[in-house]
Design a protein around this nucleic acid. Structure first.
Lengths: 189, 189
DNA sequence: CTCATAAAGACAGTATACGGTCAATCCCGG
DNA sequence: CCGGGATTGACCGTATACTGTCTTTATGAG
């Protein structure tokens, strides 16, 4: 595993090496001619997609056997921390698309990890609550989830790990409003 | 737009602030008790998902009117740079899942941007080639795609932009083998 | 009180992702 | 030459994402 994941550094490094130094400090991304593969490989958009792939792969690997996705983990965690939220506010708490969360909740309910009950005050709303089974699952899977986070940053130098979190946090915060599902901490009603 | 995207820094910053300083430098991720929202918000996995959301949103916004996704852009770019690749090697060049790329190619073909022709030597293989319409599209959309990359990193400090690319590149390279679709530069036959 | 509006959740349609299977085909060792 | 193993692309099934629409229900203005 570890050996395998280190096998092809050299080959990949051919194109994925440290960002090219450019003479002028001005444009981070070069001119207009037909995009070359090298350009593609240094585009943040491409790199972020790769990071997401890696994140998902590690989660799947570490949490195999729990029948849980990272998305479901986030939802479950937020429901436990916010008993009786409704779907819309939950989606804001974890920056999910409102259209997507319905299916996620349905699967969580089908597995017996959450309950959806009609709200008394507002008949449009379904309140969400974690079940004992859901709590137990969350407890059991937590070590694996932590391993995912550690393994994700493990290949970076220790000081780079903190930097990575800082930069990603800044990115998410400063771009919060451009996403279709912006994060809202205080889910005001 | 710009004003809107800066409207809620304070609120979001409540939970998405600079990573907490911990007394011991040891564990980057804390102990075992029930995960709190704050933990979730600093998990690299969560932050990477947010970054992907942002990247997609910016691409959609900048490239609206081209009827093109970021995935399709990457495929088209790679096909242009590697005439007569087949689907399997293409997927390795841009780190796509082999199961996914079939549909992507079908859509590209339906829009008249690529051609799929049977290989003479190997009757299993379909060779891929960009059409003039595809080349024109790529030329036309390139400025928008560059704007996406610039806007993605724009909110970071200039020195942080380079760091971000360096760290993401390292992450992708060092974790290359854990993904289901590892990147292969030299698509050896 | 009533109507326009807004909000909640369901649902349909499109596009990735990824695991797994399958038929056709290739290729290498015997 | 031949058969088993590997490869290619097509599919199927599941899970996200996101846009847009629709029904039901709340709520606030007049």
């Amino acid at each position: 595993m570890a050996a395998g994941s280190r096998a092809s550094f050299g080959r990949v490094a051919v194109a994925l090496c440290i960002p090219h130094r450019r003479r002028n400090p001005a444009p981070l991304f070069p001119a207009s001619p037909p995009p070359r593969m090298d350009d593609l490989y240094t585009m943040p958009g491409h790199l972020i997609r790769r990071a997401q792939q890696i994140s998902t792969a590690l989660f799947t690997e570490e949490c195999a056997g729990f029948d849980l996705t990272s998305v479901q983990f986030a939802a479950l965690t937020a429901i436990k921390a916010n008993p009786d939220v409704d779907a819309t506010r939950l989606s804001a708490l974890i920056a999910f698309d409102r259209s997507t969360i319905g299916d996620v909740l349905e699967r969580l309910e089908a597995k017996g990890w959450i309950l959806r009950s009609a709200s008394q005050g507002d008949r449009r709303v379904k309140l969400l609550r974690i079940t004992p089974a859901g709590s137990k699952l969350l407890r059991d899977v937590l070590p694996a989830v932590k391993r995912v986070q550690e393994r994700l940053l493990a290949p970076l130098a220790p000081e780079d790990r903190v930097t990575m979190i800082r930069l990603l946090t800044g990115l998410a915060e400063l771009h919060n409003e451009v996403t279709p599902a912006p994060l809202r901490i205080a889910a005001q009603r």
